[in-house]
């Protein structure tokens, strides 16, 4: 779905709409919660079909895999360190 040049995926719009509704206290939360909790608890099942595809990648993508994993290994701790430092500097100013 395109809106002012930014593409927002359909399910995400659905999530935002539901969020906007649920932010206001209502009985709706109690109504959906049993279903949503089940769905989220078993979320991994829904990823399986795509995840199995990792064993059926084309050889050229397979060659890239070590580099991709290396990128994750570098980028993830870097992001954590950056966020830790950022939060510490904000909290430091507030003497909290």
């Amino acid at each position: 779905m395109a809106w002012t040049g930014i593409i927002v995926p359909g399910p995400l719009i659905g999530m935002l709409l539901l969020l906007a509704v649920l932010i206001y206290p209502s009985r709706l939360t109690n109504l959906i919660q049993p279903v949503s909790t089940r769905l989220i608890q078993n979320l991994s099942l829904l990823f399986i079909p795509a995840c199995v595809g990792a064993f059926f990648l084309s050889p050229s993508i397979n060659l890239q895999l070590p580099m991709l994993l290396l990128t994750v290994v570098i980028s993830t701790p870097l992001t954590m360190i950056a966020m830790t430092l950022l939060i510490r500097s904000i909290k430091g100013q507030q003497n909290d």
């Binding site: 399910p11 995400l12 999530m15 539901l18 939360t29 959906i32 769905l39 989220i40 979320l43």
Partner: peptide, 9 residues
Amino acid sequence: GAATVALAV
């Protein structure tokens, strides 16, 4: 898709 929407809860 439904599960993504459910994350709002």
